[in-house]
Design a protein around this nucleic acid. Structure first.
Length: 376
RNA sequence: GGGAGUGUUCCCGAGCGGCCAAUGGGGGCAGACUGUAAAUCUGUUGUCUACGACUUCGAUGGUUCGAAUCCAUCCGCUCCCA
């Protein structure tokens, strides 16, 4: 249940209560695709870096270890020992990212497993069943994330199909939540807006799905190659048709600058692989921009990644040491970098919330919207 | 003491008369990454007054229109026989 605490223009400060606790928004969800943060972070680590929501993936967990296994183990919370909310993505993004390995039909999508090539079918019902087995706090609707650019006619057909799939998702989720054997029978369902970069499709689709009175609404299919101005335009275009009393999720976004733009346009929650993936590749967020810790200039740099940061990494280690760990291919390099970057994102959201609380969001936005995405 | 090899750009290692500034790895340097098939991928790595020029393949001298590639001597290393 979403409560809007405060509005500053279209920006929203709110909170979202679930059976696994309350999420202060705007918030960033930390991506743990296979029920683990890549780079070697545990649920305990996530608590330490002030993560509010963990995000896992339906497709990946269905393949390994199998949602039946997770269900037998008591659901994702018990399995991972993460106590707070978990959002599971539906597999819709894999319809996009595994494009070479799948075929889309009305009933659903046929995948060839990226692991061993065996055939997998996933439709709205299957996705809901898997997510019910995983027992996440929030299930995402099974959608098609369309590539960009896409033809208008293709986008429209896909969008219509995603709406039909959403109705099937809702029906199946209602059924599953009514079963006695369901681990989490309060599982929430978020719908996903699609429509590529066509305003009329986006708006029409949003109007249709808001009628379904879901627990939250996501904007999907963005940050898939379109210019960022186009992404911001789509968010603004669709925002006014999103229910005010429901949480809004911008899927897969993004850079700190993208997040500030999203918050400004009324988005409540975000997720993105960038902080963790970039960390693994040595690209580290700081309050002065992005550094590449592997660069030779840090060879003898005894200062922390960011003197303004009070994360466990910045309090204890120098740039020179972390650079060395990368060069020596020590896995601690990945772990420390991921801890820092995710802390940075979680901390960024906290600062955004504080600035909304005390009315200084526009100052915060102006100061950081460009700076944080700049390479230094 | 006798015999057989071998010496290549930061390292390993191809090349055995012109298409060689010299394959391929490694290392170095840099870049990309947005609901994670991603501890991955890409570029670059002799010098310069840079679509051309110059200096390199143990050293020196030679053969040739032309040599990292052939010859001679020397130096270093390796192996075998005594």
């Amino acid at each position: 249940m979403y409560t809007l605490i405060k509005n500053i223009d279209t920006a929203r400060r709110g909170e979202f209560s679930t059976i696994h606790g309350t999420v202060q928004t705007p918030a960033f969800m930390n991506v743990a695709t296979t029920a683990a943060i890549k780079g070697g972070l545990s649920a305990q680590d996530l608590e330490d870096i002030r993560c509010q929501v963990m995000l896992c993936n339906t497709y990946h967990l269905h393949l390994r270890p199998g949602d039946d296994v997770v269900a037998t183990m008591g659901g994702l919370h018990k399995f991972t020992n993460w106590k707070r909310p978990i959002l599971t993505d539906s597999g819709g993004f894999q319809v996009f990212s595994l494009a070479k390995l799948r075929k889309i039909k009305e009933e659903g999508v046929y995948f060839a497993s990226h692991i061993d090539g065996h055939k997998i079918f996933m439709g709205p019902e299957e996705s809901m069943q898997i997510q019910s087995h995983l027992a996440s706090t929030i299930a995402m609707a099974f959608d098609e994330c369309v590539e960009n650019p896409a033809e208008y006619s293709y986008s429209k057909n896909s969008c219509d199909r995603t709406t039909r799939w959403l109705k099937r998702c809702k029906a199946e989720m209602t059924r599953l939540n009514g079963l006695e054997t369901t681990i989490n029978n309060k599982q929430l369902l978020f719908g996903i807006n699609q429509g590529c970069c066509f305003d009329d499709l986006r708006i029409e689709h949003m109007k249709e799905i808001r009628e379904l009175d879901l627990d939250g609404y996501a904007i999907g299919g963005l940050a898939v190659g379109e210019p960022k101005e186009e992404m911001y335009h789509v968010i603004s275009a669709v925002e006014e048709y999103m229910p005010k009393d429901k949480i809004r999720y911008l899927m897969g976004v993004g850079t700190p600058g993208n997040i500030l733009e999203g918050v400004k346009r009324g988005v409540d929650i975000f997720d993105c692989v960038m902080p963790s993936r970039n960390a693994r590749h040595g690209h580290i967020n700081t309050w002065n921009g992005i550094i590449n810790i592997k660069n030779a200039k840090y060879l003898l740099d005894e200062s922390p990644i960011d003197p303004e940061c009070d994360c466990p990494v910045c309090r204890n280690y120098s740039k020179a040491y972390i650079r060395h760990l990368f060069k020596a291919e020590e896995m601690l390099a990945l772990r420390l970098s991921v801890i820092h970057n995710l802390y940075f994102y979680n901390n960024l959201m906290e600062k955004i919330r504080n600035s909304l609380d005390d009315g200084t969001f526009s100052v915060f936005y102006e100061k950081y919207v460009e700076l944080l995405d700049t390479r230094i």
